[in-house]
């Protein structure tokens, strides 16, 4: 895939829930091919809604969503299923099917291109199975292929979630709070893995994330959302106390800004954490 052109284009995207809450208010957003973008903002700002509107797990109220050259909003059910194959989604609480094995979970990423009976009897095409094996090796889970998903740790589960999304051969990753249930070290590993895989496959990504520092470390662009509107859009370096106040509201932001000083203190904190873990074992 070329790194030119736009993968995802949102125009005047609005979502009003039946309760009357306006979650998204005429959002315009372009994600170029291959760009990893972080979406930050307080809880309830509409980050999750935005991501879910893109693959229409949530139906947008108005506006348009264009993936490549496909208008997502006007699709028939069959067309929507085909479009969903082109978007890999990674979830906050992993959303693995707990009672299926790791391999079954990864293969489920290909359900859209396999007929019902083949998927029912788990007779996936050889190429898909080979790809699933390769992907599991890439995310470091080769030893856990036949384990049930609920037997894994949080970090391992999220790796299965990542493998499932990538087996779809998507054009874009929709990532909803990938690290919210993970410890600081695992969070970093997962973010690094997601960003590396995006680079390897030339994927664009929209990553919802609460941890501003973590976002600054890994992504190329940050978009700030407040009350359903885009209030910041720029490179991580442009994020300052004023901008964070604009997004989240008044607070002392000095400790969470990713300047040189802050980054090195975060590194120190991580090292302390590692030492503590080493001491425990």
């Amino acid at each position: 895939m070329s790194s030119h052109g736009t993968t995802l284009r949102l125009r005047a995207l609005s979502k009003r829930y039946r309760t009357g809450d306006l979650a998204l208010d005429r959002v315009d957003l372009d994600v170029p091919a291959g760009q990893v973008m972080a979406l930050i903002g307080p809880s309830g700002a509409g980050k999750s809604t935005l991501i879910r509107c893109v693959n229409r797990l949530v139906e947008p109220t108005s506006g348009s969503i264009v993936l490549g050259s496909t208008d997502i909003t006007g699709l028939t059910p069959r067309g929507l299923r085909r479009a969903r194959q082109r978007m890999g989604m990674i979830f906050q609480e992993y959303a693995l099917v707990e009672r299926l094995t790791v391999m079954e979970n990864v293969l489920s990423g290909q359900l859209g291109s396999v007929g019902f009976w083949r998927s029912y009897f788990r007779r996936f095409p050889e190429a898909t199975v080979r790809q699933a094996f390769a992907m599991l090796e890439r995310v470091g889970l080769s030893d856990h292929i036949d384990k049930r998903a609920d037997a894994l740790s949080g970090g391992q589960r999220q790796r299965v979630g990542i493998a499932r999304a990538l087996v779809q051969n998507p054009e874009i990753l929709l990532v909803d709070e990938p690290t919210a249930s993970l410890d600081p070290k695992t969070s970093r590993q997962i973010m690094r893995l997601v960003c590396e895989l995006c680079a390897e496959h030339g994927l664009a990504a929209v990553i919802n994330i609460h941890d501003v520092q973590l976002a600054q470390l890994f992504v190329q662009r940050i978009v700030g959302l407040r009350a359903g509107r885009v209030v910041f859009d720029g490179p991580p370096g442009e994020l300052n106390a004023d901008v964070l106040t604009e997004i989240y509201g008044e607070e002392d932001w000095t400790a969470s800004l990713g300047g040189k000083q802050a980054a090195s203190s975060a590194q120190a904190a991580l090292e302390v954490e590692e030492e503590r873990l080493a001491g425990l074992t």
């Binding site: 693959n55 299923r81 479009a83 989604m89 979830f91 099917v97 489920s108 019902f116 998927s119």
Partner: peptide
């Protein structure tokens, strides 16, 4: 959430039933 994840892969209704 597990059902949503399967739907998000582009699975049909019958596949969501069997997998999710």
């Amino acid at each position: 959430a597990q059902v949503e994840a399967i739907r998000a892969t582009g699975a049909s209704r019958a596949q969501v039933l069997v997998y999710g």
